[in-house]
Design a protein around this nucleic acid. Sequence first.
DNA 1: AAGACCACCTGCGTGC
DNA 2: TGCACGCAGGTGGTCT
Length: 310
Amino acid sequence: MPELPEVEVVRRGLERWAAARTVASVEVRHPRAVRRHPAGAADFAARLTGHTLGTAHRRGKYLWIPLAGEGTSILAHLGMSGQLLIQPEDAPEEKHLRIRFRFADDARTELRFVDQRTFGGLSLHPEAQGAADGLPDVIAHIARDPLDPRFDEGAFAASLRRRRTTIKRALLDQSLISGVGNIYADEALWRARLHYDRPTATLTRPRSAELLGHVRDVMHAALAVGGTSFDSLYVNVNGESGYFDRSLDAYGREGEPCRRCGTAMRRRQWMNRSSYFCPRCQRPYAPRSLRPAGASGGGTGTAGPAARRQ
DNA sequence: AAGACCACCTGCGTGC
DNA sequence: TGCACGCAGGTGGTCT
């Protein structure tokens, strides 16, 4: 389950249904699900058995569950299609069941990692010394996410000014800002009326602060309704879908009217995926010097198209 | 050496 | 009916 709101929904489920439970046994059903655990499936299972799960933490799209008193965490990434499910012990096996955790208690439920495309996976890592909440060292390169109170807004704006790339690439770069994926990038850009190919260096600090505000708003809104699910692939630990797909303004709306101006939304092939945008509200960036005379429309000498509003 | 690309998977919908 | 192709919410290794 991909982006930050959906992963946070899962984290909350783990906190409620898996924390403080002691692992009785672990069954790895597909080796790819533990490929990030170099010591292999048998080692993964053996090192978990008998240990008690702590409270799940999250940074961006990564989750980790510390093992009580061990200095070790289970690191999880759901990839494109991963699910962590709390299921009754006698529930039929999912077609893509990859890992099963049985617990040493009377709850008669177990934790299952189910993943159709196997881009996701679980692994065990030592907690980095002095890192926040025992952040595993292998994800030290992942930036804080926009819902993290310690996210550094000034540093983010400065990085955007410094970089020679475009805004959607930057939003998807997990080492700059984590947790944003293709859906929420398009949603935030639509809200900010920014074209996906706008060079990051052209964003003023107030403009990037505004964009960041939209990223946070759309993520909070999605979180409030359990995340975005188009189908049964994206569910909470109890297998339930969120409702935010009904509130999407850009993603998946090719041909439908822009909710602001009514213009038909467009889809563009972009980096082997899709970008959805309004061709009227989200114009491509054109430096003043390249625009035909008079095209700036009542320019006041401020920034360029970024300063314009519909 | 920052930035861009594409391989890694399975399944589903569409068009021939 | 079946086959080929495009598409799907992500990441990291590998190129330049």
